[in-house]
Simulated scan of single mutants.
Amino acid sequence: MKIEHVAIWVKDIDKICEFYRKYFGGVVHPIYHNPAKQFTSRFITFDDGARLEIMHKPEMFHVEQSEHLGYAHLSFSVGSKEEVDRLTQKMSEDGIQVVGQPRTTGDGYYESVVLDPEGNRVEITV
C-alpha cells in the first residue's frame, strides 16, 4: 500500500505550484476547474511518484485562520545533509522563510523547516 497523494488548500495555486516545482523538482500538471463547484486544482508529481494536489475554492478563505486541524507539514527527502544545507541556504537567499535551521532532531532526523508562500510548513530532510 502507498499514499496516492496529499492535498492542501491554498489561496494562489500558481504561486504554490511554482514553489514546489522550483525547489523540489515537481512536475506541474494542467489545471482542473469545476465551475459548478467553484473548485480548481492542479497535481504536482515528484520523481519517486509521490503526488501533491494543490486545491483552491474561494469560499475557503472568507475567514483568515493561522492554525487548523489536519495537515501539519510535508517532508521532502533530498538525500544528504549537504543537500539539506544547500537547499535551505538557497531558499533563504531567495526570501523563503526558514523557521527551523538545519539540525539533528531528538528523534534522529537531520532537517530544516521552511514555509511555502502561504505559510505551510515544509521539512527538508535527508
Rank of each mutant, 00 (worst) to 15 (best):
G26W: 00
K57Q: 12
R42E: 03
G26R: 00
H29I: 04
G25D: 00
V27T: 13
D48H: 14
A36W: 03
P35V: 03
F24R: 01
F24H: 04
V27D: 08
F43P: 05
F39D: 12
I31Y: 08
N34K: 08
F39M: 12
F24E: 14
H56T: 10
R51W: 06
V27N: 09
I44V: 14
F43G: 08
F24P: 04
H29C: 09
F61Q: 01
K37C: 10
H33P: 09
N34I: 09
F24V: 12
Y32E: 14
G49R: 05
R51S: 10
P35N: 03
E59I: 03
E59R: 06
S41H: 11
N34L: 11
S41R: 11
H29F: 04
Y32A: 13
K37D: 14
L52A: 01
I44W: 05
Q38G: 03
M55D: 11
H29W: 04
M60L: 07
A36D: 13
V27P: 00
P30Y: 13
F24N: 06
R42D: 01
P30L: 07
R42N: 06
M55F: 01
V28S: 12
A50Q: 13
P30Q: 09
V28G: 14
I44G: 06
R51M: 14
H33F: 15
T45M: 01
T40V: 09
M55Y: 02
H33Y: 15
F39E: 11
I31D: 09
F43R: 06
M60I: 01
G25I: 06
F39C: 05
D48C: 08
F24T: 12
I44S: 09
E59L: 03
M60Y: 11
V27K: 13
A36R: 09
K57V: 10
P35R: 00
T45F: 08
N34M: 10
T40M: 05
V27H: 11
I54R: 02
I54M: 02
K57L: 09
D47G: 07
H33N: 15
P30H: 12
E59M: 05
L52C: 00
G25E: 01
G25N: 00
P58H: 01
F61R: 01
F43D: 03
R51L: 06
I31M: 13
P30E: 14
I54S: 07
Q38T: 08
K37P: 06
R51K: 14
H33D: 10
H33Q: 15
F46W: 02
I31K: 13
L52G: 03
K57A: 12
G25R: 03
R51E: 08
V28D: 15
H29E: 07
E53V: 00
M60A: 10
F24M: 07
V28I: 10
G26Y: 04
P35G: 01
F43C: 10
V27S: 08
E59F: 02
P58Q: 00
D48V: 12
G49T: 00
I31Q: 12
A50E: 07
D48T: 15
K57N: 09
H29G: 10
M55Q: 09
D47L: 05
K37A: 14
F39R: 09
T40P: 06
F61W: 03
E53Q: 02
F39N: 09
G49F: 05
P35D: 15
Y32P: 13
G25F: 01
M55K: 05
I44L: 09
F61M: 03
V28P: 15
Y32R: 13
